[in-house]
């Protein structure tokens, strides 16, 4: 048996930028977060809000991990420290995951100004947003200037995560055809910056033109409105990553200058509070209220009670059992 360091003690070390403490607290929040861990996170939350959080999304294979690696190099060259949360899908069968984003990021380690953490999407009930955004908080409180979140842009949880970023970057690979259409339909509104990756490929120009045309259509006229840029990048030719960092910085300045940052912060708070509330309810259904659920389900199937009535009954009963520290 090993000596377990209390979470509050770890929280103090997180504030000093102690990497092992950050790593351990992420593990604890990811595995559910008992009251002691929640208390430490609540304390650390006071020290967050300084980092610029960038969500990076796109279909698998779009080039996100490659781009994150190059972008981190740019930030380091500009003197900023970077935390990365890289999310990969879990197996729907076992809940386990092979987290491979690090394969591309190998050359970033052994730099104390960079911290990379891999995370799995987990099962349907587990909920990804809460632990991922808790991890972002820990990196923020740990003093990282920029926090990048890499996640595939499918599924509500993933979309919610990128919505909880200050700047959202959507990565489009050339030649993905209908896939790219599908993802654009869902995330077009949330993109603050579009990237066309693999710009070394001949078909990338077509994708750039298509995207620009589509953005023109959705453009509202007016002064002081953010115009979503399309940035081509190539890891083969080492081009575009400086421009991408500049575009993200410009977006950050725009948020501050226009005052939109206030609305964005409110939106992020809303997303997070609702997500956690949902998770508490779902978790409670899955565990504490299981016996009661069965009883109610029986009544619903036998037409003694309607689904809405059963749900209200459950939620009322839940009020008693939810503890603050959940």
């Amino acid at each position: 048996m090993i000596n377990r360091i209390p979470s509050m003690e770890l929280a103090e070390r997180v504030r000093e930028g102690h990497l092992r403490a950050i790593a351990r607290l992420i593990t604890r929040v990811e595995s559910g977060g008992d009251p002691e861990v929640r208390q430490a996170l609540a304390e650390l939350y006071k020290s967050t809000g300084r980092a610029h959080v960038v969500g990076i999304t796109g279909v698998p294979g779009a080039g996100k991990s490659t781009l994150v690696t190059q972008l981190v190099h740019e930030y380091r060259a500009s003197g900023r420290t970077v935390g990365v949360v890289a999310i990969d899908p879990s197996s729907p069968f076992s809940g386990g995951a092979i987290l491979g984003d690090r394969i591309r990021m190998g050359d970033l380690v052994s730099d104390p100004g960079v911290f990379i953490r891999s995370m799995a999407t987990r099962g349907t009930l587990g909920g990804l947003a809460r632990p991922a955004l808790d991890a972002v908080d820990l990196l923020d409180a740990g003093g990282f200037d920029v926090v990048l979140i890499e996640t595939v842009g499918v599924g509500q949880d993933e979309v919610d995560i990128v919505r909880a970023a200050h700047t959202t970057v959507v990565v489009n690979a050339p030649g993905l055809g209908d896939d790219v259409q599908a993802i654009k339909a869902g995330v077009l509104e949330i993109a603050d910056v579009h990237v066309v990756s693999k710009a070394d490929r001949p078909d990338s120009n077509k994708t750039i033109q298509e995207l620009k045309a589509m953005l023109m259509m959705s453009l509202e006229p007016g002064e002081g409105i953010w115009r979503v840029p399309v940035v081509p990048t190539s890891s083969e030719k080492h081009t575009g990553f400086g421009e991408l960092m500049a575009a993200i910085d410009r977006h950050s300045e725009h948020l501050e200058r226009s005052g939109e940052i206030t609305e964005r912060r409110r939106q992020i708070a809303l997303t997070r509070v609702v997500k956690v509330a949902e998770e508490i309810v779902r978790d409670n259904f899955a565990r504490d209220s299981r016996s009661q659920t069965e009883e109610l389900l029986k009544k619903v199937t036998q037409r003694e009670l309607d689904p809405h009535g059963a749900a209200v009954t459950l939620l009322k009963a839940m009020k008693e059992t939810i503890h603050e520290s959940h």
């Binding site: 990497l19 790593a23 992420i26 879990s90 394969i103 052994s110 891999s118």
Partner: peptide
Amino acid sequence: DVVYTGLHRTPEEVVDAAIQED
């Protein structure tokens, strides 16, 4: 959850990564 490093890492890279991944 399995974090795979890929080929040709140095001991330093692997130990640093293992600590960050906890």
